[in-house]
Nucleic acid binder design. Structure first.
Length: 273
DNA sequence: CACTAAACCTGGGAGC
DNA sequence: TGCTCCCAGGTTTAGT
């Protein structure tokens, strides 16, 4: 589920509730959701620690503790992290409950793809899943020339390149399709075959689409909620994702749906070239 | 190296 | 109503 705008929204809504709070207890209803080094127990990892920082890297949420340890969370398809000011009963797919000095944090995940990974102090820099991520698309290290260099000579479809987290991190299937529509570029175009003017359009479209997603509080198709349990609203502004066969909002012709790299891709054959 | 399929899971919706 | 099949916001790993 959560792509960059959703994880960023969770970060922003969660931070005021948990920053500075002390962890009293951790409860694992499904232990598989909480990954930690051999020999370390969940209680030893978290108990009496306080939350010092809450950051995002791509689609990862990084919860920093006061001793330098980090809980790295990836929501995959259906994960959610919700703060409850008062003790709340676990929902059907709640796997982890973190009891804080005030309130509780519930991690739920219907499909059980997501994970909370405990990383001991000083070991975050060695985490492969974070190290191989490309630049933040809304950050200073993502610039047009970098984008051009990374796509240069690549024969892979540009849609697949947008989903490649080692090129840019944070885009998922929704925002990739929307950005390509915004840029007027067909998803199956060869990455290395784009003109520089098209790369510029795509670079801008990626950043604009993600910023709009954040402004809307993310896209709620089914499961996604922010840390307060609230839905996003970007689903009301989607122009192609999930609209295969329906009329293009710009030209009225039917949108096409195809598979690229195993993922559904929706585009307008008239507005995108 | 590059691309594809399978694996990890559950549940909603379509079609019969 | 109920059964089967297909699909889903992601990533890693194994295979070609």
């Amino acid at each position: 589920m959560p792509e960059l705008p959703e994880v960023e929204t969770i970060r922003r809504t969660l931070a005021p509730h948990i920053l500075g709070q002390t962890i009293k207890k951790i409860q694992l209803l499904w232990p598989g959701a909480f990954v930690l080094p051999a020999g370390v127990t969940p209680a030893a990892a978290l108990r009496r620690r306080s939350v010092a920082s809450l950051d995002r890297r791509g689609k990862y949420l990084l919860l920093g503790l006061d001793n330098g340890a980090t809980v790295v969370t990836h929501f995959r398809m259906t994960g959610s992290l919700i703060y409850y000011p008062q003790p709340a009963p676990p929902a059907r797919h709640t796997h982890v409950i973190i009891h804080l000095a005030a309130g509780q944090l519930h991690y739920a995940d219907q499909r059980k793809f997501g994970r909370l990974q405990f990383v001991p102090p000083g070991e975050l820099g060695a985490l492969a899943c974070l190290n191989k991520l490309g630049p933040e698309p809304l950050g200073e290290s993502f610039w047009l020339e970098y984008f051009a260099i990374r796509l240069n000579g690549k024969k892979t479809p540009v849609k697949a390149a947008l989903l490649d987290q080692t090129i840019i991190c944070g885009l998922g299937n929704i925002y990739a399709d929307e950005a390509l529509f915004q840029a007027g570029i067909l998803p199956f175009r060869e990455s290395g075959g784009l003109k520089f003017s098209e790369l510029f359009l795509l670079y801008d479209a990626v950043r604009l689409t993600l910023r709009q997603g954040i402004e809307a509080g993310g896209t709620t198709f089914r499961d996604y909620r922010d840390a307060d349990g609230q839905s996003g609203s970007f689903q009301n502004r989607l122009r192609v994702y999930g609209r295969g066969g329906q009329p293009c909002l710009v030209c009225g012709r039917p949108l096409q749906k195809i598979k690229i790299g195993g993922r559904a891709s929706v585009y307008c054959p008239d507005c995108q070239h």
